[in-house]
C-alpha cells in the first residue's frame, strides 16, 4: 500500500500556506516584542521556534489546540530587572509581555509544564501562538519565568530536544517525522486517549532507534506502524493499554489483508486507526499480470 501511505503522509502534513500563516503570525508577534525591548531592527534573531512547528511534526487538519511554540529572547537588563523584582518577578515579566502584545493582539494565560506562558489567540482559532519570554545563557540554554508558587526562574533547553529529534530524523531518513505525524493522527482520532506529544515523540524515537535505525521506505510503512504499536503497547501504562490493544489488532488485520492482496479491506482497518485522512481503496486489484488473456471466447447461449 505504498501509494496510500504516501498520500496519507501528504494528507496529514501542513500545507505550504498553513506553514506560511503560522510563520506570519509568530514573526508578527516577535517583531512587536522586539520593537518594545530592542532599539535595533528586527532580524529574527530574538525569536526561537521550538515544539512541533520546529520539528514539523504538527498535523493536518488543524485543531484549536495546535499552538505554535515560540520563545522570545529578552535582553539581559530585562531579565535582571525582573529577577531582582521584589514580588513575583516571573509573573510580572509575563504581565509586561501581555501588556505589550495586548495593544495589537488578544492574549490570555496558558498553563504549561514549565509554568505559565502567554497565549495569543487569533480570530479563526488556528495557529494560536504560545510565547515564552526567555533569557539565553552563554551555554545556549535558556532561563524562563515560572510564575507558579511565588515565582521562580527555571532552566530550559529546547535545543537539546530539537537536536535529539533531528539526529533521529536524519538517521532514519525522515521516518521519525513521518511516523510521528501518523501516530499523532492516531491520537487525534482516538478522543478518549491522552497521550502527551513529547512522550509519544520520545517513545517513537526509542522505537526507531531499536528497530528501524536506518528508516524504511513507504512500501514497508504498514509493518513499521504495526511494530510501533507493538512496541508502544509493551511499554504503555494501564490508561493507554486498551487503546493500544485496539490499534494493534487493527494494524495486524491490515497487515494480513495487505499480504492477501486485499488493500480495500486493509484501508478500512487503517481508516479505523487513523480516520479519514487515510485514503480508502475502493477495489481490490486483480492480479492482472498473472491473468490469462483470451480473445476468442464462445458466446453464451440459453436454450429456451
Amino acid at each position: 500500500m505504498e501509494k496510500q501511505f504516501i498520500k496519507f503522509s501528504e494528507n496529514i502534513r501542513l500545507t505550504e500556506s498553513q506553514e506560511t500563516d503560522a510563520k506570519t503570525k509568530y514573526t508578527g508577534i516577535c517583531k512587536t516584542l522586539h520593537k518594545s525591548y530592542y532599539d535595533n531592527k528586527y532580524d529574527g534573531k530574538t525569536k526561537f521556534l521550538f515544539g512541533s512547528y520546529k520539528t514539523k511534526t504538527n498535523t493536518r487538519p488543524l485543531s484549536q489546540d495546535q499552538d505554535v511554540d515560540v520563545l522570545f529572547r529578552i535582553p539581559e537588563e530585562t531579565y535582571k530587572k525582573f529577577k531582582d523584582y521584589k514580588g513575583n518577578g516571573p509573573s510580572a515579566l509575563l504581565q509586561e509581555i501581555k501588556d505589550v502584545l495586548n495593544e495589537t493582539y488578544t492574549t490570555t494565560d496558558e498553563i504549561k509544564g514549565w509554568g505559565k506562558i502567554v497565549l495569543i489567540k487569533f480570530s479563526e482559532n488556528k495557529h494560536n501562538i504560545e510565547v515564552l519570554p526567555a533569557f539565553e545563557l552563554e551555554n545556549k540554554t535558556f532561563i524562563i519565568p515560572n510564575s507558579g508558587n511565588g515565582g521562580s526562574w527555571d532552566g530550559f533547553d529546547p535545543r537539546a530536544q530539537i537536536e535529539t529529534f533531528q539526529s533521529s530524523n536524519d538517521k532514519t531518513n525522515s521516518l521519525t517525522v513521518d511516523l510521528t505525524r501518523m501516530m499523532k493522527t492516531w491520537v487525534k482520532n482516538t478522543p478518549s486517549l491522552d497521550y502527551k506529544s513529547y512522550e509519544l515523540l520520545n517513545n517513537i524515537m526509542d522505537f526507531l532507534d531499536e528497530n528501524y535505525k536506518k528508516g524504511s521506505d513507504y512500501s514497508k510503512y504498514h509493518l513499521v506502524i504495526k511494530d510501533c504499536f507493538e512496541c508502544l503497547k509493551a511499554i504503555c501504562d494501564y490508561s493507554t493499554d486498551s487503546h493500544l490493544t485496539t490499534a494493534l489488532d487493527r494494524a495486524k488485520k491490515a497487515v494480513d489483508f495487505i499480504a492477501d492482496n486485499k488493500p480495500k479491506e486493509a484501508s478500512l482497518e487503517w481508516r479505523k486507526i487513523f480516520g479519514n485522512e487515510f485514503p480508502s481503496v475502493t477495489e481490490n486489484p486483480t492480479n492482472e499480470s498473472k491473468a490469462r488473456v483470451f480473445t476468442t471466447p464462445s458466446s453464451p447461449y440459453a436454450n429456451y
Partner: peptide, 13 residues
C-alpha cells in the same frame, strides 16, 4: 478458480 482477462477488458479473479 480463474484469473482471466478478456481482450482489453478488466481482469477478474
Amino acid at each position: 478458480s480463474f484469473n482471466l482477462k478478456f481482450s482489453d477488458e478488466k481482469a477478474i479473479e
